[in-house]
Amino acid sequence: MIDREQVLHVARLARLRLDEGEVEAMTGELSSVLDHIEKIGELDLDDVAPTTHVVALENVLRPDEPRPSLARDAALAEAPDSDGSGFRVPSPGA
């Protein structure tokens, strides 16, 4: 179960702007999905370890050896707004 206010809060966290219709729909759809998901609340999982990886790897490390970087033009090639030296954005807080 998730209510309208929570939907709006989560949308802000996720930087998603939802119009009225979407907020309505999301609230309903997410609630029914969450109701289903909440069934895992019934399981006794107290002494069960969480699984983050199914692979049993550890210490996968890279030698500290330089590899070529991109030419600046290549780095900026897909930039929606570049000044030729970097990626332009509205100043935070501005």
Partner: peptide, 15 residues
């Protein structure tokens, strides 16, 4: 804890 934490433990059970 209620969602992600539990889901990871369910994952362990399923494996």
């Amino acid at each position: 804890d209620a969602y992600y934490g539990r889901a990871q433990r369910v994952r362990t059970k399923i494996a």
